[in-house]
Design a protein around this nucleic acid. Structure first.
Lengths: 108, 108
DNA sequence: TGCCTATTTGCATGATTAGCCAATTATGTG
DNA sequence: CACATAATTGGCTAATCATGCAAATAGGCA
């Protein structure tokens, strides 16, 4: 594989990770994983920021290909497009746990 | 779980994802996954940025608990602390692939 | 049509990030 | 000790990001 292609691959992956790398967006993904679809208004309540802010977070997730949206009536419903988030989060969680262990070692 | 704790959990996860969310840092992780340990000087060649820049990328990965380092002589060697990166990347990759499919649909 | 609700977009602001060069620290070697 | 190498840190700039308010868009409904 050419260096150029390789570079593009890293950039693409990074852009997806970046889309996930925010507490509010992680929470959004979490909520969406519990339900089939949720409207912006309900998500806004969950997050507790201005609706415009939530809308922008959602559009970042959408641009990254993590969620999709559908407008029905005046409302817009968001849905997860990806089903593997659980394994991703379990990996992230293992970093967290590993860190805790490390910290305990330091303290003991 | 309290809302406060929940919030902290999202923040912690986000910080780990943020540490990974950069092409150069992904490349560093990739290289480190191929070898047991690599010194900063070698990693600098791979990345092709200034060594100071690479050093800062590495310290971000270290702060996130993704890599660890050991100084031997004048050199500092970095190692992955986490073994599950492969499953994480396969998830990311499935987002990429899903995107490609979507794009093909749009084009056809 | 006129008004209400849901959502997105424009704009301004403050905060964070990435990058390089230069300076500093630490180690090894003559 | 003097010098070279490896790595980190300080300082600066340009770019990107997060956020809220206000305005615009679009869909119901009387």
């Amino acid at each position: 594989m050419s260096t150029k292609t390789e570079q593009l691959r890293y950039e693409k992956r990074a852009s997806i990770l970046k889309a996930l790398a925010h507490p509010s967006r992680l929470k959004l993904v979490d909520k969406l994983s519990e339900a089939d679809e949720v409207c912006v208004c309900d998500l806004t309540e969950v997050i507790g920021s201005d609706m415009s802010t939530v809308s922008r977070h959602l559009s970042q997730l959408k641009n990254a290909g993590i969620v999709e949206s559908e407008k029905r009536g005046q409302m817009v419903f968001y849905r997860l497009r990806v089903k593997c988030l659980k394994s991703l989060f379990s990996c992230i969680e293992s970093v967290v746990k590993c860190d805790v262990n490390q910290n305990m070692k330091v303290l003991s």
